[in-house]
Design a binder for these strands. Sequence first.
DNA 1: TTAAATGCGGTCTTTTTAGACCGCATTTAT
DNA 2: ATAAATGCGGTCTAAAAAGACCGCATTTAA
Lengths: 76, 76
Amino acid sequence: MLSSADKKNLKRFGEHVASIRRKKKLSLRQVSYACDIDNSKISKIEKGRVNVTLTTLLQLAEALEVSLPELMDYTL
Amino acid sequence: MLSSADKKNLKRFGEHVASIRRKKKLSLRQVSYACDIDNSKISKIEKGRVNVTLTTLLQLAEALEVSLPELMDYTL
DNA sequence: TTAAATGCGGTCTTTTTAGACCGCATTTAT
DNA sequence: ATAAATGCGGTCTAAAAAGACCGCATTTAA
């Protein structure tokens, strides 16, 4: 099970992903085309409903055209 | 299934984790005490045999006393 | 005002991680 | 030489991610 601290973290991470995507003016479907992740899954990630794996993070970074450390830099 | 590119990435990430741990002169068991991840699992991570989730990455960063972006900064 | 695009939630199956534990060969320290 | 510590591989179960697909309400654009 996921602790509530973990849930908060996933949520914050998701918000960070969404903000990057919006800044780049990409739709969920555009990102999904770019990295072969289903658009509904990206939505779930942005909503903090999934605990993504490292390889998914890599795909996401690639599709959003940011470095992995940049993608992970969402601490307040 | 994991692509061979993914496998390489996990391996490089694992090596990065191992190097941080050694630099801090910590044993697998010491890290495992610090973040409640089994030492055998940490070994597997360092060997690139597991596709870790974000929450595991967070625990690991905490135990190794590095920031998440720093933990993820392993690109050549 | 219609049609297209978008965000997002749900479903189902397969694959994998998480989590806990054991054992052992090798290394390190006493 | 002996004992302790360490790295690491394997096992087993339960929980969750991955992956693919559908549908629909709302937003945006033609």
